[in-house]
Simulated scan of single mutants.
Amino acid sequence: MKIALIATEKLPVPAIRGGAIQIYLDSVAPIISQTHNVTVISITDPELPQTEVKNRVQYVRFNEENYVQSLAQHLKEVSYDVVHLCNRPKWIEILHAASPQTKFVLSVHNDMFSYEKMSDAEGESCISKVSKIITVSDYIGNTITSRFPQAISKTSTVYSGVDLQGFNPSWTSEGASSRNRVRNELGLGNRKVVLFVGRLSKVKGPHILLRAMTKIIEQHPDVMMVFIGSKWFGDNEVNNYVKHLYTLGAMYKDNVSFIQFVKPQDIPDLFVMSDVFVCSSQWQEPLARVHYEAMAAGLPMITSNRGGNPEVIEEGKNGYIAYDFENPEEYARLINELLGNQSKRESLGKYGRQKVERDFGWNNVAMNLMNVYQG
């Protein structure tokens, strides 16, 4: 089959600027290309050529300014069996018109079918023109089918994944070596490290974790909470909210540290140097990919009961769900429980690694996508 994978207009592929969708396409394309003809289409970037071939994958890049029009023209000129479009249901109309014989698969990574983003007519038109809709979580699937019941027969969940080889848990020799090296570089020694990875945005809830610090330090004075991220992917500019976080963090200068945007290839070492991963999202998160990364690194997880995040948690087996997700004391309680019990941390981390190996490797994701394409 000849397959086109189309990224959004936000970031390029390969994922040199980060981005969950970009990492997703970057990871599955070389696997699918082992048996099929694959083209990945994204926006241009100063560090990338307009076209190139890597790992049998053809990369085509168009300017952000007229991206959709360029996509439509490309589909008129190049015939594909399957076009997999990421997260832009409104584009289906123009792309389908450009190539009406093509089978369109839409993957939905956020709540793109909400009333704020799409009219009834737009949603119905999109659903009528796609062969399949795949979503990153059951939660996102329900946001579509609850509004548009006619989408039920076309909609299924294909969970995202993680590079299993890229993450070495601390009980492996490679993981232990990375853990010690990064801890030495950051001056952490044997301190207990709690990790947050994500945009420094109010909807991600880092301020709530900072407000939990007093109660965490009471029980674990050697704790270090590490925040990795910036206000937006690759943008380390400090806005008012980030300034507020820095001010809160300064109250616990011996127990809080901030690391700005980190390139995807450097992320695994920062996971493995940690003891507990926490996701404090306050919005209806589709399902943050950091959960897969935490499991791959063998970390126990704490996540908020928001959106699709709880779907990868087996309560008490690979982590815990913060049901009172707005309350700093809830996070303090769960974090303290894990920091105080090393054997529990280890058992949750090992179960998480087994789970991600079984269900969420990129080979699994690619196989699930091929089942959709061929269905």
Rank of each mutant, 00 (worst) to 15 (best):
V28P: 00
E65W: 12
A98C: 07
I43P: 01
L287F: 09
V78R: 10
V53K: 08
F325A: 08
S178I: 14
S27K: 07
N309C: 07
Y331H: 05
K344Y: 01
T102P: 02
P264A: 04
E9N: 13
Y320T: 06
N37C: 13
T44E: 10
H84A: 10
P268M: 03
S137H: 06
S114F: 12
V108M: 09
Y59C: 01
K215E: 11
G352T: 03
D222Q: 02
F258A: 00
Y331Q: 00
Q219F: 10
S99K: 12
H74C: 12
V53I: 12
L5I: 02
Y80N: 09
S170W: 10
P206A: 09
I32R: 01
N66E: 10
F196G: 03
G205R: 03
R333A: 11
E93I: 12
Q374W: 12
T39D: 05
Y115I: 14
S99W: 09
V60Q: 08
W283F: 07
Q58K: 15
L164F: 06
V108R: 08
V256R: 07
T102E: 07
V223D: 03
V356M: 06
S230G: 05
Q284E: 15
T143N: 08
L85D: 09
F360W: 11
Y115V: 14
G123Q: 02
F233I: 12
I321P: 06
A72I: 06
Q73L: 13
I3G: 08
R61N: 04
K231W: 13
F113Y: 08
S177F: 14
I134V: 14
S343M: 08
D235Q: 10
Q150Y: 01
E77V: 05
G166A: 07
F271E: 04
L200D: 07
I152T: 15
R147N: 06
I134F: 05
A250I: 09
R88W: 09
T135H: 03
D324A: 09
E64R: 15
H109D: 08
S131H: 12
W91Q: 10
N184A: 15
S153I: 13
M295K: 09
V130E: 04
V290M: 00
D269N: 10
S125M: 11
S280P: 01
I335F: 03
K231E: 06
V365I: 07
G340V: 01
I144S: 03
Q73I: 12
C86R: 13
N66F: 05
A322H: 09
G340P: 01
W232L: 13
P221T: 01
Y351E: 14
A4V: 08
T44P: 05
M112Y: 11
G349F: 05
F104E: 04
H96C: 14
T39L: 05
N327Y: 01
H109V: 09
V356L: 09
A7Q: 06
A176P: 00
E326A: 13
C126F: 00
N168D: 12
G161N: 07
V182F: 14
T155L: 03
D138K: 15
D120L: 11
Q342F: 13
N363P: 11
D269I: 11
N318V: 01
K103L: 09
L11E: 05
L186R: 11
K202G: 11
M273I: 04
